[in-house]
Design a protein around this nucleic acid. Structure first.
Length: 421
DNA sequence: TCTGGGGTCCTAGGACCC
DNA sequence: TCTGGGGTCCTAGGACCC
């Protein structure tokens, strides 16, 4: 029997990356803009302004303090971009030209060359992410982190969480986040995570949607199956192949039929999801399962021809993963590699070792063994290194200094991590 | 020059043990 | 000689999500 008072919220920041950029560069609001690629632009902009840009009104030099005054004409355009990057996000005026998330920047440049191109500034987005989550936790501590710009919150036991089905608390959260960060969000409140996630999209931006079990038929069933968190492009295509386009059409199928066509586990889940059933709790804490680093090369590489270059990249990836493990305080014993060939086919190999490690040289050694088990005669597009089967360093009895200031540069030490040896 | 990076979870087969 | 389970760990691939 499910708790009839259960109230779960999904909070989704509105156009998060673009909105954070608009806090720095309000002059870009309303313009076609794309965020992607990797270069910082502030320094370049300031240098160019001081060299041959317009003078500042007070006659002083341009600096970080004057970002909001930089003329729009000075910003880099999509047309100037060269490389393999993809669009992380595009503003609505840019989308009208047909550009959108995950599109290659080169292709986007053909569609909308005049769009302003800003690099992805994860450090800045993480700062705002921490800020809005701190506000949420302060008001409603039962919060589940779902990435940089969204969270689930269990309203059930929060004082006031039941008022107007959760709408009152949702309004308080929106106002508090806006006051603290200047950013807006949308919130869906429902009997469970599955419905709350869909509901948060109903009235974007700045919306609050309160959904009850009785709204299933009217509000949920008309939606496309793809709106369900967990039905991706592949499953959707298969459902469409069976003439199932909406959640209502999915709900109309017999459970046994879904199990027969989609497997015992996924088929049963599809049936539950279509009927709005979801008992998953809001999980406030979780341990990481793996850590990885990967990179797409500027051009395809061949092991035989580009050995030295690949070796440098490989070592760098191992060093970065080791550094991530050390900084966050974990050891791992399953070490693996990932390749993407020029045809986008992916190959992975991994190996489990007896003694968990966080040592870059040990990781490189084991990952190097893995590399010998894949086809290296083909053109390579991407190389990745992964460490899984993690345990906490303190649980492993290893002396460890956890540095929570993830964004600061850290000193490299020459010592060997205790990996048994 | 189409197609990034960092994750989680599931499946399925094989090894190995009882 | 042939025939069984169950359980766990390891490995490779794939779907999906942010």
């Amino acid at each position: 029997m499910t708790d009839p008072t259960r109230r779960i919220a999904h909070l989704d920041m509105d156009a998060f990356y673009a909105s954070v950029e608009w806090l720095r560069y309000p002059q870009l609001k309303g313009l076609p803009m794309v965020i992607g690629g990797a270069r910082r632009v502030e320094d370049e902009l300031i240098a160019r302004l001081n060299q041959d840009g317009p003078a500042r009104p007070d006659g002083g030099p341009w600096s970080e303090a004057h970002l909001a005054e930089i003329p729009v004409a000075m910003f880099p355009r999509l047309a100037d971009y060269v490389g393999r990057g993809v669009i992380t996000t595009a503003t609505y005026p840019a989308r009208q030209f047909g550009v959108g998330s995950a599109m290659g920047l080169m292709k986007a440049a053909r569609l909308c060359p005049q769009a302003i191109l800003l690099p992805v500034d994860f450090a800045e987005y993480r700062r705002y992410s921490r800020a809005f989550k701190a506000v949420v936790r302060d008001i409603a501590p039962h919060m589940e982190d779902r990435g940089v710009d969204e969270v689930y919150i269990d309203f059930t036991q929060v004082p006031g969480g039941q008022r107007e089905g959760g709408r009152v608390l949702a309004r308080l959260l929106q106002k508090s986040i806006l006051d603290a960060t200047g950013l807006s969000c949308s919130i869906g409140v429902a009997p469970n995570k599955l419905i709350a996630k869909m509901a948060s999209e109903f009235h974007k931006p700045g919306g609050i949607s309160v959904v009850h079990d009785s709204d299933l038929q009217g509000l949920i069933w008309p939606l496309a199956c793809r709106k369900i968190n967990g039905i991706g492009p592949k499953a959707d295509a298969r459902l469409q192949g069976h003439g199932i386009h909406t959640i209502g059409e999915l709900a109309a199928r017999e459970r046994v039929w879904l199990v027969a066509h989609f497997g015992k586990s996924y088929g049963a889940w599809l049936h539950d999801a279509a009927w709005g059933r979801d008992e998953r709790p809001v999980v406030t804490e979780s341990e990481p399962v793996s850590m990885s680093r990967e990179t797409t090369f500027d051009r395809d590489l061949l092991a035989a021809r580009d050995r030295a270059e690949l070796g440098v990249i490989f070592t760098e990836l191992c060093t970065q993963v080791a550094e991530d493990l050390r900084r966050k305080g974990y050891l791992g014993k399953t070490i693996g590699i990932k390749l993407r060939y020029d045809n986008f086919q992916i190959a992975t190999r991994d190996q489990t070792i007896a003694q968990p490690t966080q040592d870059a040289r040990r990781i490189r050694q084991v990952a190097g063994q893995c590399l010998k088990r894949v086809d290296l005669t083909r053109r390579l597009r991407l190389l990745g290194v992964r460490v899984g089967s993690l345990i906490k360093a303190d649980a492993a009895g290893a002396p460890v200094a956890v540095d929570t200031h993830a964004d600061l540069p850290l000193f490299q030490h020459a010592g060997v991590a205790p990996d048994g040896g």
